[in-house]
Design a protein around this nucleic acid. Structure first.
Lengths: 327, 327
DNA sequence: CTGAAAGCGCTAACAG
DNA sequence: CTGTTAGCGCTTTCAG
């Protein structure tokens, strides 16, 4: 059996309370006493038992990250990046991290498994009722890649990213720019789409009704939609992809129509995912620091948990255009 | 405050022991009593407290998944898939799952944070001393995507996958087939490389010393290496990529040399990652059911934890060639 | 089949 | 600065 606080207490000749303090509030123990406690602990290979600690403190120090995204591929590159940032930060703090999907969570919690978490980070398209459900159980909530009033949110600067794309294309002399958006997270679609219209309007560039198209989130849909876009009368000289997958579809469609890239058509992506340098030509895309988004989400959550009062309601992570050969 | 077992005991008029049994061993309680307990629990919104349970049982029901992979992108597509399978399975069981990287784990555990896990799944290139470290603390270990004798392992059928690739290319009439391997996980490199030589030998196809090359794991290295391979005298008619990233590099190099694909050169990838359908031409690749690997890893671990005696030392998940337009 | 009671390992007043 | 002590919520013998 593992050594307990009693063993350490006995060996070091101090009370269990002091041993406890030595590990959780070392500042409140005399240096000499501290030394003796640590020595005894070392000798006994003592490690505080987190379970017992949680029990006594009525605090679990447990937080969860729930991915709210329907469909099979739960950990796409974007959410994996966020997850990465969350994991790094959480694992280096005193909090323990549970990772799950919204769906699995519902399943097990309703099955009576209470996970006793103190806070939760909801990634993606979190439903309002889920949010209020947590809040009613006194579980703090932070949103990532979503923006709902009244809950601290961490998002990327979509408007800024789209603005950089449009600026870049305009600089290259493009005036007829179209956009093809994949149906991913509604929040993201809304933001990027809105930002595109705004950016174009601001620069006085016209956007006709045929210049903005939606398609499904897979390459094939994008390829097909792009094909139509490129075969219509008055073809655009540049297409802004709502994400990299869509942009890949645009490239495929253009290639099949025998167009040269970027001479006949400039293409941009969004997310700067791993695929960008693999495409031919390499894809210009907007880089999002997903990991930082995750880190900030944990920071906001722990601040909330520690009772800090000044939590910014919205944290915006900057985005950066990565120019490559497709533009 | 949340309702406790005492509240339920009082309201239902049975002892706390019976309430406890009602939730953990319903079979040992009379149906009528069970009903009363559940009714009371319902009324009080009672949920068993996992912490207290763990404390009393001296069991944490906690397992961890550690990703042993150096470098920045911790959750690449492959490991994300495994992680997905692990999460799904673990979250639907009674076990709670902690996800971390080997590195972060070391950091926090050495800092005195004992995480009290009962079992661990080590993904990728786990060091033997880490494995024995866990075993010496009575933590059960299962390996994924790695194969070390004496520890239950879950791997993909690399030999089968490579064999299918070679068969497929041979069927298409290729006799001079080269391989380009990226330096990823040493286990994977060893397996795929060895399997290639074996498969070629078995089919009586010659492999010259210049026909197998290593490169770094990024596209640029692969592009460069492929370029050299394709500009040497006696150029191969097909190149087997050790993974999809490398294959993307091969495609880029071939395109830049003005070659037509697959007429002048057939290219295959490995992993069947999301990039395959995005490339032009779409990449033939070997599909690995990563999620299943994760699921099986959890299954092996829980079997171990439940004291089952018949744990297969090696679990091999089948692979399947996905033929696309690059061959 | 059910109940009584003794912990599990640690923390947090409260005293000193 | 340190010790005493009463729990935290649940499980688990051991009786009945």
């Amino acid at each position: 059996m593992n050594a307990t606080i009693y063993d350490v207490s006995r060996l070091s000749g101090v009370s269990t309370a002091t041993v406890s303090r030595a590990f959780s509030e070392p500042g409140r123990v005399r240096a000499e006493t501290l030394r003796r406690v640590y020595e005894a602990a070392e000798a006994l290979h003592y490690h505080p038992n987190a379970i017992a600690r949680a029990m006594a403190r009525q605090r679990t120090d447990k937080i969860a990250y729930l991915i709210c995204k329907k469909g099979a591929t739960i950990l796409d590159e974007f959410y994996a990046g966020i997850c990465d940032g969350i994991m790094r930060t959480a694992n280096r703090s005193d909090y323990q991290l549970l990772v799950s999907t919204e769906e699995d969570w519902r399943l097990t919690v309703s099955a009576g498994q209470s996970k006793q978490i103190e806070g939760v980070i909801l990634g993606g398209n979190a439903q309002p009722e889920m949010i209020s459900g947590f809040q009613s159980q006194n579980v703090q909530v932070v949103l990532v890649n979503n923006n709902i009033a009244g809950v601290p949110c961490v998002v990327a600067d979509e408007a800024g990213g789209v603005g950089q794309v449009v600026d870049h294309l305009a600089d290259r002399g493009h005036r007829h720019i179209a956009m093809l958006v994949g149906r991913v997270n509604p929040y993201v679609v809304r933001e990027r789409y809105g930002a595109f219209l705004a950016a174009m309007a601001q620069r006085g560039l016209p956007v006709g009704p045929a210049d903005v198209r939606m398609c499904d989130a897979d390459v094939d849909s994008a390829t097909e939609a792009a094909s139509e876009l490129l075969q219509g009368r008055d073809r655009p000289t540049a297409i802004v992809g709502g994400n990299d997958v869509v942009a890949a579809g645009v490239i495929k469609a253009a290639r099949r129509l025998g167009m040269r890239l970027p001479e006949d058509l400039a293409v941009t992506g969004y997310d700067d995912s791993a695929v960008c340098p693999m495409l031919e030509p390499e894809l210009t895309s907007v880089h999002i620091d997903c990991r930082q988004m995750g880190e900030l989400a944990v920071a906001r959550l722990t601040a909330l948990l520690d009772g800090e009062s000044e939590i910014p309601p919205l944290t915006v992570v900057p985005t950066l255009l990565r120019v490559r050969r497709s533009t």
